[in-house]
Deep mutational scan, measured.
Amino acid sequence: MATGGRRGAAAAPLLVAVAALLLGAAGHLYPGEVCPGMDIRNNLTRLHELENCSVIEGHLQILLMFKTRPEDFRDLSFPKLIMITDYLLLFRVYGLESLKDLFPNLTVIRGSRLFFNYALVIFEMVHLKELGLYNLMNITRGSVRIEKNNELCYLATIDWSRILDSVEDNYIVLNKDDNEECGDICPGTAKGKTNCPATVINGQFVERCWTHSHCQKVCPTICKSHGCTAEGLCCHSECLGNCSQPDDPTKCVACRNFYLDGRCVETCPPPYYHFQDWRCVNFSFCQDLHHKCKNSRRQGCHQYVIHNNKCIPECPSGYTMNSSNLLCTPCLGPCPKVCHLLEGEKTIDSVTSAQELRGCTVINGSLIINIRGGNNLAAELEANLGLIEEISGYLKIRRSYALVSLSFFRKLRLIRGETLEIGNYSFYALDNQNLRQLWDWSKHNLTITQGKLFFHYNPKLCLSEIHKMEEVSGTKGRQERNDIALKTNGDQASCENELLKFSYIRTSFDKI
């Protein structure tokens, strides 16, 4: 039985969820670079991206490699990797027998973001014989899940209580170790020597080791999670996991709180800001991140802002960003909400898709409305799209047979046209069989910064309504002859009103 693990408890099935942008060198404390989270699957090609990484700022997932063999891993080693800020997950990587050479110096898994409450997941690794993470000293947050690894031993010899604050939620089941077939031998045991430290858990006094050649490092209890030197002297209180010299914040392997210019500090002093819960960055760093993602459509890219001495992905609820200094300031009234469309555009074809934009005031991208039916549609669209004030790209209304009016965009005031449909149009209306009105132009103002209007096959939309939009939106004169079809717009509506004058002759039985 794995020490510190839980057996036999019912657990939810383990679901495996399925960018080499360097964020800056980590400095003297770390020998390499800070790398983003990685999802490495199918083959070993991307694994080489770990070569210079000291910190993975995010998670590391290595999974679904069915053609790899043990010899493929023999020359692979990433000794610079010290810390993973989120979680480490391995799933069905064939041929991998140990992690001792792959990650010989991995010391800390912070667990800032977890995989279903777990910071370390080893699942269905069919050839893994031992973990071998002999320098792993601290899992700051989260638990361990090690399950269905039929060859995995050296679990009962690990004292997880020396690595985690609590072992109650560890789930370590259905491994070879369960069948008591392992016969784990710690260093020196074969020669009758006791080389590794022994600890007591559940009444068992057991030597602690990761492999037959690597003991588990056990520091004096007084050192807590700070770690200790090879001689057993406690590291500085700002260290986490390990250090090369005692009581020196510049000799830590990793930091308990924050890293700044080669030393570990309790908090980031001005003019620095907390970033990702582990390091200090200056304003320029946060500003660069903001600008890199301002026009990016890459998933996970955030326009970072500053709030409460932190550089964070977005302002919290009730705050909006001051564009001059990136500071989050309290909103006066309802907060603006910028919604970034991942692929640059979004099609609204149902109430469900409209709900995804609920509360958005600025759309960074283009909207395509293609709704053919739905219950209580006008009210639903207004509830979900009615706060949109600005669209950076274009607005396209296409084959939306259920629409009679666009009044559900009740606050839309600006279409920038930074991206144009077919390279020309910022407003595009095609084949809307029941569209009769755009907006009530006596109450609604709309500016279209650039781009043209396109109207074709809107049989109940009168040309007068379209011409009014040209005047109000500032697009009059931009359109070419064929942009607004004269014969297919309003051709099934009563669009022309003329005053009919009647004269009559009164007659009676005795007068003409």
Rank of each mutant, 00 (worst) to 15 (best):
E124W: 03
P197Q: 12
V34M: 15
G227D: 11
H127R: 03
V305M: 07
P316Q: 03
M137Q: 14
D261S: 03
R298G: 11
I222N: 06
V218S: 10
G111E: 00
P269S: 03
L174P: 14
R92V: 02
N149Q: 03
G188M: 15
C196W: 02
H302R: 06
D277M: 13
I146S: 02
E124G: 06
I62F: 05
T189F: 12
N309S: 08
S143V: 07
D177I: 15
G192R: 10
V305D: 02
K292W: 07
N242V: 11
Y171W: 10
Q287P: 03
I56D: 00
F91N: 12
P31L: 11
V121S: 10
G183K: 10
H236F: 02
S237K: 05
C219V: 04
T250Y: 03
C335I: 03
S143G: 07
C280V: 00
P187S: 08
D248E: 05
E57R: 03
I139S: 01
L64K: 09
V265K: 00
S317E: 10
C209Y: 02
C239G: 01
E51L: 05
T320L: 06
M38N: 09
F78E: 00
K310R: 09
Q245K: 10
R69H: 07
P269T: 02
E151T: 02
A156I: 10
G203R: 09
C286I: 03
Y273M: 15
T189I: 12
L128Q: 05
R69I: 07
C315K: 00
A190I: 07
L289Y: 15
L102K: 00
G241F: 03
P271T: 05
L114Q: 11
P104R: 01
P271R: 09
L44M: 07
P104D: 00
G333W: 03
H302N: 11
A254T: 04
H214N: 14
L155S: 12
D247F: 09
L289K: 15
A254L: 10
D177W: 11
Q303R: 13
R162L: 13
K251I: 01
Y304N: 04
P70I: 09
E314C: 03
N195C: 07
D39C: 15
I306P: 02
R145F: 04
N295W: 05
E180I: 03
D248G: 02
S54V: 14
M125S: 05
T250G: 04
V218M: 06
P220F: 02
Q303A: 05
D165Q: 05
M321H: 15
H48C: 02
C331K: 07
C243M: 00
G227P: 12
I185A: 04
N202S: 12
C209T: 04
S237W: 08
V93T: 08
L99E: 00
C264S: 01
P246A: 14
L240D: 09
E180K: 09
N325E: 10
L136D: 01
E180R: 12
H302A: 10
L90R: 00
R46M: 14
V265Q: 01
G262Y: 02
S143Y: 03
K67H: 01
H127K: 03
H302I: 07
D288F: 07
I201F: 14
H212S: 04
Y87S: 01
V121C: 12
T320M: 08
V55T: 04
L90C: 12
Y273R: 02
S284N: 13
E168L: 10
D248N: 04
R74W: 05
P187H: 04
C328T: 00
P269N: 00
G262M: 06
S213M: 13
D184M: 05
A119F: 01
C209I: 02
E147V: 10
G32E: 08
H212Y: 14
G262D: 01
Q299H: 12
E49I: 13
C252L: 00
L327R: 12
Y118W: 10
L106R: 00
S54G: 01
C255E: 00
Y304V: 04
L326T: 04
F275K: 01
D75Q: 09
Y30P: 10
D159N: 12
L102Y: 01
L174T: 12
P316S: 02
L128C: 02
K100V: 10
M65G: 04
M137H: 13
T199F: 10
S284F: 03
L90G: 00
L152K: 01
T157C: 07
N195F: 10
D165H: 06
R69Q: 12
S284L: 12
L131A: 13
N257S: 07
E97W: 10
G132E: 01
V206G: 03
N105A: 06
C219K: 02
A190H: 11
C315T: 00
Y304I: 04
Q245G: 05
Q276H: 02
G142A: 01
N322F: 11
T320P: 02
C228R: 02
P270C: 02
N175M: 06
T250I: 04
T221P: 02
P249G: 02
N135Y: 02
Q245I: 10
I163E: 01
L332F: 15
G333Y: 08
R279A: 08
L131V: 07
P104G: 01
V305Y: 02
G58E: 00
K176V: 04
C234N: 02
P334K: 15
I172P: 12
F103Q: 00
N325S: 15
T199D: 15
L136K: 01
T68L: 08
R263S: 00
L60G: 00
R145H: 15
N202G: 11
H212A: 14
P31H: 00
E71H: 15
G95I: 03
A156H: 05
L102R: 01
I109S: 00
S323R: 05
